[in-house]
Amino acid sequence: MKITVCIGSSCHLKGSREVVEELQQLIAENDLKDKIDLCGTFCMGNCVNGVNVTIGEEIFSLKPETTKNFFDTQVLKRI
């Protein structure tokens, strides 16, 4: 599964680093490094709703503090 986090300027200022770090930690904790490919991209053209994160083609709007919930409800169920 490929999770892409927007690291464009707007999302970066809204906390994409924290989102990436939290996802990295959660992936490690859940031993999912082999199953999840986490990567970054510069801008998804949806700056107003950042931090933008996609799973495949589906786009989600995250904040650092909602990342855990996103992982639990969206990522884990797709594994």
Partner: peptide
């Protein structure tokens, strides 16, 4: 710059 260390700036790239 928001990021004060080099490590923080490049940590999103992994």
């Amino acid at each position: 710059a928001l990021e004060k260390t080099i490590q923080d700036a490049i940590s999103v790239l992994k």
